[in-house]
Design a protein around this nucleic acid. Structure first.
Lengths: 252, 252
DNA sequence: CGCTTGATTGATTTGAGTCAATCCCAGTGG
DNA sequence: CCACTGGGATTGACTCAAATCAATCAAGCG
């Protein structure tokens, strides 16, 4: 199994031939370049290693690896996670195109968690040293880096609230809404989409058992809230979902 | 109740008369100044608003407040938290002297969570704009800012693992070890200390009920692992505690 | 010295986990 | 082209860890 994963990871990919600049990247408004002038964007563009590619279920990095820089998903999907000795994975986050991951390495220049591609995935790397130097001279880039880090932290905090205070069905509803709104932001349907992750990963993210995920999906379907077939999800009653998670006090 | 909290918060404090520079602050090796030259330290020192003070159980900021900058605890203790509509608090973190909080405001210049003093607390504020400008010219300061942010994220990730995968007794053991090692780092005893937070807050941090916290403390005591009386904790068997949490795969 | 608030203890309930079969599809190879 | 197969997903039966409900108990305070 491990050998197979390694073999896959080492394959050359067609996508690695692609040359795409931030300038023309459809994700730039969601990604690090957001808010930069054309000139500054150009500087950023030159230091990016891209695109790299990983097959489904292959590791991108793991704890102890040297921290290379920020990773930005271009296509596919990535999960970051920690594990218990017993093997259970706590998924820390799912990362969709335009989203950044790898910030866990900032503390001491070593990655602290695992990152794995959930499907065939391509991504850019922004080497940290070069990015840092550029930050010194482009205030807008610093702002954007702060913004992204702050966003990551707030996502983690929402996740903590979910794991610490929400029931299993609230968790699943929150999860569906999060995926839905993120697909929407990327120009896809908010109510009909294909989940990029397995039931196992959903369970790992929500801190519940796979069987519970299965049962809850079924229950949601029976209530007419969603229609689900394998990874194909159709949200039939978005209001009901929102109602279910309307428990986290919103800032006024 | 609210009125009382407000009144307390508005009182002038003796500590606010104190003038302490980073230079002579015993916490500087744990705090933002770490790794800065004397000259750079001086620049940093000039932009710090300090010291501010809050009485026990008073709010320092809340969701929607304007993001002012990084907060560094000087004495006392602070909790940051989110709440459900129903009132339950999910504690995001406990912040001891020398620790930084308030980074949740980085995403969009508004605070996203609550911060409250758990006891009479003094702290410094590092205004964000000034700190950012200084970051442009002091690479070491940028490094330290990255380090602190990375550390925050990794703390949150460990917290996610705790909430998602650990049993109630593993959670409490993890919590005790975390507090112990942080006190130790500050030059206090690792095995005998006074908890700065209530049972309610511990429960809120660990995602379990207060009653469970109480029962577990009792159970730990009966097993000879700790001795506990109200907030006074004596750890009798540190190895046993470590054994209980030896479940998170360590980076090799 | 009563009062309020936090902590403890006990009795009972329950949401979600665990264990154990299937089921079902995607991919493989004949 | 279709049978085979292995891993993910589903379903059901049963268990249990922790929540909830309900009294005390203890301590700090006005």
């Amino acid at each position: 199994m491990k050998a197979m994963m390694q073999k896959k990871a080492n394959q050359a990919h067609l996508t690695s031939q692609l040359k795409v600049s931030c300038d023309t990247c459809s994700l730039s408004e969601l990604c690090l370049p957001r808010g930069l002038s054309k000139e500054d964007l150009n500087k950023l563009d030159h230091l990016i290693e891209r695109p790299r590619s990983h097959d489904a279920n292959t590791l991108i990095y793991q704890p102890g690896d040297k921290f290379t820089g920020f990773y930005a998903v271009r296509s596919g999907g990535v999960k970051t996670y920690l594990t218990k000795k017993t093997g259970e994975q706590q998924i820390l986050g799912f990362h969709l195109p335009g989203e950044v991951f790898g910030l866990d390495g900032l503390e001491n220049s070593k990655q602290r968690c695992y990152a794995a591609a959930m499907e065939n995935t391509s991504y850019c790397i922004l080497p940290h040293e070069e990015l840092d130097s550029l930050c010194a001279v482009i205030p807008e880039l610093r702002s954007q880096v702060y913004h992204i880090m702050g966003h990551e932290m707030n996502c983690d905090h929402a996740h903590l609230l979910l794991l610490g205070q929400q029931t299993a069905h609230e968790r699943l509803a929150t999860f569906l809404l999060s995926i839905s709104s993120r697909f929407k932001k990327r120009g896809f349907s908010a109510t009909s989409f294909v989940l990029p992750m397995s039931r196992h990963d959903i369970a790992g993210y929500l801190g519940i058992a796979v069987e519970t995920v299965s049962r809850l999906f079924k229950s949601f379907q029976e209530q007419g809230i969603i229609k689900i077939n394998r990874k194909q999800v159709d949200i039939l009653d978005l209001d009901k979902l929102n109602e279910m998670v309307a428990n986290c006090e919103e800032p006024k």
